[in-house]
Design a protein around this nucleic acid. Structure first.
Lengths: 221, 221, 221, 221
DNA sequence: CATGAATGAGCGTTCATTCAT
DNA sequence: GATGAATGAACGCTCATTCAT
């Protein structure tokens, strides 16, 4: 059997890498088109036009395949997004770029995003080690955004707010955007992203909001 | 067999209504405590201390039971939240109340919310008729929030923004809050809700944000 | 589902008891005729002319079914053998009765014995909790024989020997007898049993063996 | 493909013989350490640090490999035991040597014996051709012991008993000894073997047993 | 000679659903 | 009204075996 425990992809033969990539690809398609519950190994294998036994051969188990899906999507997303964000001069611009860049990614890789969303939203704390990759990656993303926010606050770009709540809200709002996109693929996601960027630009901006006539919560991390 | 397709509860006998309520209650508990995947009819029936066959008798199928769960949770939520929102003088106050009131509901009915979250996050758009109730209720909530936003815009309380994006973002941010709460039940959800309210108060407020030096998207519905 | 965790059979309905008995019966047949490896739930169900799902319904898992088989065979064996042994006046007579009575049981319940043998010989220390019943029962049988031997030694009926080695040898010799019987069902097992009884009567008898011109091992427990 | 059905090793190339020996060796190790159920061709190949496909290449199928394991263990056992037995002056001494020599072999080649035991105890009489070697070898051993017994009877060393029952009993008692040894590897197997030798010395000795006050079975072959 | 990718049958198990009682 | 026995499809997984390279 292919040694799935290897960490370095260099240890995989060309055929193994190819097959694994194909299976990950098909898993993504099935997840996106038919949903998590329907994404059985049988269906994925059928989509790949391959015998049912191929998947256990190349992946130790179902969870490994799903982990590979998550890793693949995050790999693409990071390679698309990271450079754009890093190129921004200010934290505010970086956050804006994170939002619009994410939306661009949703638009350009809707299938991958749909698959990722299926996996993440079906993950549950205790039941399995699959989706651990997903949770890990999500946490990582949240803390990356959190660092941007901290940077902006220290640079005086942003007002004082709870970093965690803000980061989570940005992340969640993007999820909402993805949700709308999945519901209607012809949706103008970039326009929505601009709106979203504006929402959070205003939410984070220094100075009192014109309409801030409510008692505010204490600033927290 | 009882006709479960009836919409008017008047057509159900007392026993039928009682049993359905009990089963919905138990389904909520099992969903919250053991998760969607473990919430088999067997487990729900066992929790209700009732025979396995009872559920198919009272609900045409599994999906109908889940729909009933969703409807029940939304029913409670609405009865908790609606009066508070309706009592607010301004749209801004109403939105703030929607946010903090939702959080209060999350805090006070964690089991119900957990069950709802399990169902919603496992539901799929196209493949089956399940959780249609969830989608219906979500849409209804979104449009209710949308109406508040419209009202606020017309009253000059809010700036011009895309109603749909804003409504969706508020909804999604609340989901994020719920997510954090489920991850850590001892979380101070009300403090987060205040933060969230502030975020959206600022996001919706009239006037330019101090830090709004980016090209903005056109205002849209 | 039927509650298989109940210890008291009284908690089972008539139908449950009947089905379980039937399935145990069929499992015995399949084990005896086709061997442990072939005794899959599918085959057992087919033998019972019953749907594949029936077995998981009545037994929590495969191991529970096999445990029930072991328990059933030991139950029969005990009820056949125990009274005869207890009726013997001396330990020597009891051992002889144990041997011939076991053989009689092999002769009269060859299928049951074959099934038991399949399970016991396929049990392995660490892998599963099934067959634990088998090991437990085997140990119990060994210690029961051991007690008889001790009694005989104290009564002066037997010479001094290692109780454990003797008990194990008797048990093993009976296994050998069963082996021959399984290889040739027309075998005169009772005649062999008489031979066996004589072998061990002599082996245990007090006094020097006429041919004992070898250094002997120290007497041990 | 190499012709694995050849009996004469002369027909095998050097590499073929080496590989077969290596694979048999590894199969023994895996069988002993992980048990029959875990001794898949994959694991054996991995233990041999060799490709999965090697085994089907050198052995027509799994059963042939297991047969080769059995043959190898019996080959070693015979070469260890035979000279010792043949050196004994009397049948009684030969039988005693067979017993203690077997135990010595168990003690000195526990891995081989464990592997053999795994195979034999999992083999089935009728359903497949597997482990035919085991049955053949067992029969051969039984008849060799039988010849010794016959010789002893004719020489007047032994009383009259059923040769087959006695041979089978000795064989089975040794199995019991092996069983105890496998259950507890620190067991003093030689002491037990001495006990066993004494048991059978007495069982076979001429003259009445002191305590033989039971009706005896007729003497038979 | 050797490889390892691929196959497909079979396993135990879960569970929504049906239906006779 | 309610029961629970029974069904059968689907699941993830293991593995002996085949075969192109």
């Amino acid at each position: 059997m292919a040694d799935q425990t290897m960490q370095e992809p260099a240890k995989l033969t060309f055929i193994q890498r190819t097959r694994r990539a194909q299976l990950v690809e098909c898993a993504i398609t099935v997840l996106a088109e038919e949903g998590y519950a329907q994404a059985s190994l049988s269906r994925i294998a059928r989509r790949a036009d391959v015998s049912r036994g191929v998947i256990p051969y190349h992946f130790a188990n179902r969870d490994e395949l799903l982990d590979a899906v998550v890793a693949e999507v995050y790999r693409i997303a990071t390679s698309e997004l990271r450079p754009k964000i890093d190129a921004q001069p200010t934290a505010a611009a970086a956050i804006r770029t994170f939002i619009t860049g994410s939306a661009e990614f949703y638009r350009d890789f809707p299938t991958q995003m749909a698959a990722l969303h299926e996996i993440v939203s079906h993950s549950r704390g205790d039941d399995n080690a699959a989706t651990s990759e997903a949770r890990r990656a999500t946490e990582q993303e949240l803390s990356a955004v959190g660092e941007l926010l901290e940077r902006g606050k220290q640079a005086g770009e942003f007002r004082d707010f709870s970093t965690r709540v803000m980061a989570r809200s940005i992340r969640s709002a993007l999820d909402g955007l993805l949700h709308d996109l999945r519901a209607d693929p012809r949706h103008d996601v970039m326009a929505d992203a601009e709106e979203l960027a504006e929402i959070f630009a205003r939410a984070m901006a220094t100075g009192d909001a014109r309409y801030g006539h409510f008692p505010r919560g204490r600033s927290r991390r």
